[in-house]
Design a protein around this nucleic acid. Structure first.
Lengths: 151, 151
DNA sequence: CCAAATAATTTGACAACTCCAACTATCTCT
DNA sequence: AGAGATAGTTGGAGTTGTCAAATTATTTGG
């Protein structure tokens, strides 16, 4: 923690607010976007959280989504009905079931991401070198965010 | 629009993806955050959309939220029950009702924003001059986003 | 003034989500 | 082996969010 709350501490809040505002200006669409692809918000959330290469235990998902275990059961039932995911037993511990994306699921995930990640005009209008520097800073942030317990 | 899709076009997508990823890494919490304040996601969405100084016609809200008019009626009913907003007739056109935040509503909006805008560690850990430059760029983006028809 | 358009509401129905409590299967530790 | 913990499921229940169709009040255009 910082020894003294300097001026830059204030600016950090301001920067974060701007970043969030910027993201939200477009993120609002995500619901409509998902709907266009025949996905409910819940489906979309799950697809974004699931890594094609790393099946997740249901319990882990429940923690990630900060919801009850049975809520995950319900959600996975819906996803499975649509053939987007598959329950797989875990060898080491047969109580655990991991959730893996099916090829359909991977396709859906990619469709969704492709649309979400289409840059809005106010980004693509930026100068090359501004993009370059933003890219550098944000890249670092994303890396830092991953290793952030966010206690 | 750019005359030629140069390399920077690719980078714009990449930058946008990073920005979104960065924002989403924390935005996921918003639901829990709202819940702590006794707000449903719908309430939160509405509070964030409403400007204390500019009451919105219900029809406008329906457009913003891309939902049915009756859905807004339902949502505003809930908000009014909690004393967060107030329906006000419009002088010029008595069919229209505008939704204004009550003092309670303004307070709730501010509580919510205050929490949302608390910067995560990976932001407050940044160097002063990085913050400075980010602030400058993002400030411009937010301004540009406002005047973006987002056709 | 009357017909058509517009803004909101009501009603009815349904899907999406969410939890809690009880239950099954499996693992772990002694 | 047996007690207790853990992972997931089931059943029941309630709220939230959503739309379509019919209704009311008001405005607008002819």
């Amino acid at each position: 923690m910082p020894a003294h709350p300097t001026r830059s501490q204030v600016t950090a809040a301001e920067v974060w607010r701007l970043l969030l505002t910027c993201a939200m200006s477009q993120f609002g669409r995500t619901a409509s976007l998902a709907q266009e692809l025949g996905l409910t918000p819940g489906h979309a959330k799950a697809l974004l959280a699931l890594d094609p290469d790393e099946p997740q235990a249901m319990g882990t998902l429940a923690q990630d989504f900060a919801c009850d275990a049975s809520t995950i059961t319900w959600l996975v039932d819906r996803l499975e009905e649509r053939g987007l995911v598959e329950r797989k037993g875990l060898k080491d511990d047969r109580r655990v079931k991991t959730i893996a994306l099916t090829p359909e699921g991977v396709k859906a995930k990619h469709s969704l991401e492709a649309r979400m990640y289409e840059p809005p005009e106010f980004i693509s209008d930026l100068d090359g070198d501004v993009l370059e520097s933003l890219h550098k800073v944000l890249g670092g942030l994303v890396a830092a965010a991953k290793t952030d317990g966010t206690s």
